[in-house]
Structure formats: C-alpha cells, structure tokens
Simulated scan of single mutants.
Amino acid sequence: MKNFHSILFISTLISGTLITISSYSWLSMWMGLEINLLSIIPLLKDKKNIFASEAALKYFIAQALASSILLFSIILSFNLYSYIGSSLTINMILMSALFIKVGAAPFHAWFPEVMEGLNWINGMIMLTWQKIAPMMMIFFNVHLTNFLFTIIIISSITSGILGLNQISLRKILAYSSINHISWMLASMLNTQTIWMFYFLIYTIISINMILIFNFLSIFNLIQLFSSMTFNKHLKIFFILNFLSLGGLPPFLGFFPKWLVINSLIINQFYLLSVLLIVSTLITLFFYLRITLATLIINTNEILIVKHKTNNFLIMTFNFITLSGLLICTLTWNFY
C-alpha cells in the first residue's frame, strides 16, 4: 500500500511538471504547478524524521503564497491591463512569484529551512526536479533584463556569504543551489540550450553527491569527517565532486559555467560575468575548506572493521561526472 501511495504521487508530480512545460497559457501553467505542489507534500512525510512535517508545512506555505501571487498577476494581465498602464508591473509581480517558487534570493528564506528538515531523497527532488517548471516559466517571460540582472547578482552574492558559516550539508547544498540558480538565470538571457546543459550537469553532480551522503547517512560536517576515514575511495570521489560542483576547470562542473561565461561575453554582459565569477569564488572557498578539512583533520580509524562500499550506482555516477568534461570537450571540439 505504501508503494502504491508513492507511485501515485510521484506520477502526478511528474505530470504536473510536464503540464506546466507543455502548456500554451499562463493559467494552465499555474494548474500544472498546483498539481506538482499537491503531489510533493505527501512525499515529504517521513516517519524516521521528526522535522519532515514542519518542512512540508513551510514548503506548502511558501509555494501557496507564490501560487496566489502568480494567479493574481495572471488575472491582472487578463482583465486589468488597461488600468495598470503597462505590462511592466504585471511582469515584475509574475517574475517575483516564480522567483519565490524556485528559491532565488532575496526570496530564498524558506529554501534552506525546508531542506534542513528533509531526508536526502526528498532533498534531491527539491534541488533538481522541483526547479524545472518554474525555470521554464521564467524562460518564457524573460523581458525585464534589469530586474533579472538584480536577482542574479543578489542570488550569487547572498548564497556565497550565507554559505560560509554553515555546518549542515543540506543547508550548504541549498545555498549552493541558490548560487547555481543565478548562473541558470544568466544562461537564460541568450539561449535555452545552455540552460538545459547547465541544469542537466548540475542535476548529475547533485544526485551523485546526495547518493554518497545517503549511502553514508551523514548530514553535517562532523559526521562527514569521521565517516570518510572508513571509505577511502568514497572520500576521493566526494572531494572531486565537491570541486566539480564549485566549477573548477578539470571537472564536469566547469563546462556549463564555461558556456555561460562565453555567452555573456559574446553578448557584452561584462559586469555580470565578472560578478558571477567573483561570487562563485566565495562558494568555492567554503567548498575547498570542507574538502581540505576532510583530508587533513585527524580522526580515529578502526582498521579491522570492513565496510561495504561497492555501490554500483555511486560508481556509475562518479564515472560520468569525472570523465564528463573530457567527453564534452572532445565532442564540441569538432564543431
């Protein structure tokens, strides 16, 4: 019965996102978002986690507020266009609602708090699948470039500063997601293809890291440092994936940022590209701090106990992420 409940809500969750993506009107997009919201709330419930209900309630309140603002802007655009005078105000209201849904700064306050109360599988859904529908709606309505520039800059700077003093891995990944949201919004200024590449690679890296965290059952940095001593190859995979998430050049995570920077410079968005690079260096600083601490901190190690670490799914995702930049570079070099 439990499996039937999960399959039912996962299928409606996927259907809601697909309805939003394939719709031709704002009202049907809003309906798809509501189906998606009502489907994920039961999935967030977890008997092993006492904070899951609180996180689900916070998520529902934030998303319901964004949905009501979105519906309000749609009604305004249908009926009261002549009273507003221009579509600028309506577009700003609509885009603000979508930024609340996706968790971009300064509308991000709910996102780390919700992530903190979820298990890793629900957190993976929150970081990846739940971003698709609002991001596509933002892409359909990229008209206010100055407003979008402001959101991009605030998201990149805020995520870097607030992520510095975190010890929870779920909050670190949440602020990292906000930083990647700013890069995704910057990729939407020119073409949808770069956003698709960015989102796909970000999803692969995030799933890979969350599989490692879920496999080791770790949620904060202290657990991370002690758990990694028993899994030498997982420690190396974790470090390389964290650096890939930060966007260092030898790894797959650098490839979409490379495409975004190239696109911004070609279209003469020099200031925006510089601000994105500098803010990403802040996030890369605390990534490096975590990886160096994982390598350097001296912890007790039991040499007798053997832990089973041969997880095929983790190995497969690690092979994809660590060899991805070489494959992408060789593929795109022939065009």
Results as ranks from 00 to 15, higher is better:
residue 187 S to M: 04
residue 331 T to E: 04
residue 205 I to M: 13
residue 14 I to A: 01
residue 125 I to E: 08
residue 153 I to N: 11
residue 184 M to K: 03
residue 290 I to R: 02
residue 190 N to D: 09
residue 329 T to I: 15
residue 222 I to V: 11
residue 331 T to G: 02
residue 166 Q to C: 06
residue 148 L to V: 02
residue 13 L to D: 13
residue 110 W to E: 06
residue 210 I to M: 11
residue 176 S to C: 01
residue 17 T to N: 08
residue 30 W to K: 03
residue 68 S to Q: 08
residue 40 I to H: 00
residue 66 A to I: 12
residue 323 S to Y: 06
residue 290 I to N: 01
residue 254 F to E: 00
residue 36 N to T: 09
residue 254 F to W: 10
residue 217 S to N: 14
residue 82 S to Y: 14
residue 282 I to P: 09
residue 28 S to P: 03
residue 177 S to V: 11
residue 67 S to P: 01
residue 226 S to A: 12
residue 142 V to C: 15
residue 119 N to P: 05
residue 14 I to F: 11
residue 278 V to Y: 12
residue 333 N to V: 06
residue 268 Q to P: 02
residue 290 I to S: 03
residue 256 P to G: 03
residue 302 I to Y: 11
residue 114 V to Y: 04
residue 140 F to Q: 13
residue 95 M to K: 13
residue 118 L to H: 04
residue 229 T to E: 15
residue 94 L to W: 00
residue 96 S to L: 13
residue 137 M to F: 04
residue 234 L to V: 00
residue 94 L to D: 04
residue 166 Q to K: 10
residue 131 K to Q: 03
residue 211 L to D: 00
residue 161 I to T: 08
residue 140 F to K: 15
residue 50 I to T: 10
residue 117 G to I: 01
residue 113 E to Q: 12
residue 98 L to H: 00
residue 33 L to K: 05
residue 66 A to L: 07
residue 260 V to T: 08
residue 38 L to K: 01
residue 129 W to M: 02
residue 224 L to N: 09
residue 103 G to P: 00
residue 132 I to K: 00
residue 140 F to L: 11
residue 33 L to V: 08
residue 161 I to V: 12
residue 300 N to M: 13
residue 218 I to T: 09
residue 319 F to N: 12
residue 75 I to P: 10
residue 112 P to L: 00
residue 328 C to H: 03
residue 205 I to N: 13
residue 96 S to E: 08
residue 44 L to A: 00
residue 198 Y to K: 03
residue 129 W to H: 03
residue 301 E to G: 04
residue 188 M to Y: 02
residue 74 I to S: 05
residue 151 I to C: 09
residue 97 A to K: 10
residue 180 H to W: 09
residue 266 I to E: 06
residue 5 H to D: 08
residue 163 G to N: 02
residue 263 S to V: 11
residue 83 Y to D: 11
residue 279 S to L: 00
residue 304 I to F: 05
residue 309 T to Q: 14
residue 116 E to R: 07
residue 95 M to G: 07
residue 201 I to C: 10
residue 197 F to G: 01
residue 136 M to H: 15
residue 237 F to C: 13
residue 17 T to Y: 07
residue 34 E to A: 05
residue 37 L to I: 07
residue 46 D to P: 01
residue 275 L to M: 11
residue 213 F to A: 10
residue 241 N to D: 13
residue 235 K to V: 02
residue 275 L to Q: 11
residue 144 L to Q: 10
residue 97 A to E: 10
residue 197 F to S: 09
residue 333 N to K: 13
residue 210 I to S: 14
residue 250 P to L: 05
residue 265 I to P: 04
residue 310 N to V: 08
residue 291 T to Y: 09
residue 108 H to I: 14
residue 104 A to Y: 05
residue 108 H to D: 14
residue 220 N to W: 13
residue 238 F to G: 07
residue 272 L to H: 08
residue 3 N to V: 15
residue 287 Y to G: 02
residue 322 L to I: 05
residue 280 T to L: 15
residue 281 L to S: 09
residue 294 T to Y: 07
residue 217 S to A: 12
residue 219 F to W: 06
residue 220 N to Q: 12
residue 213 F to L: 14
residue 60 F to N: 06
residue 210 I to L: 11
residue 124 M to Q: 03
residue 314 I to N: 14
residue 35 I to C: 06
residue 291 T to N: 07
residue 261 I to S: 02
residue 159 S to C: 07
residue 30 W to T: 00
residue 91 N to H: 13
residue 121 I to M: 15
residue 166 Q to D: 01
residue 208 N to S: 15
residue 113 E to G: 10
residue 32 G to L: 03
residue 333 N to P: 07
residue 241 N to W: 14
residue 114 V to P: 09
residue 50 I to W: 08
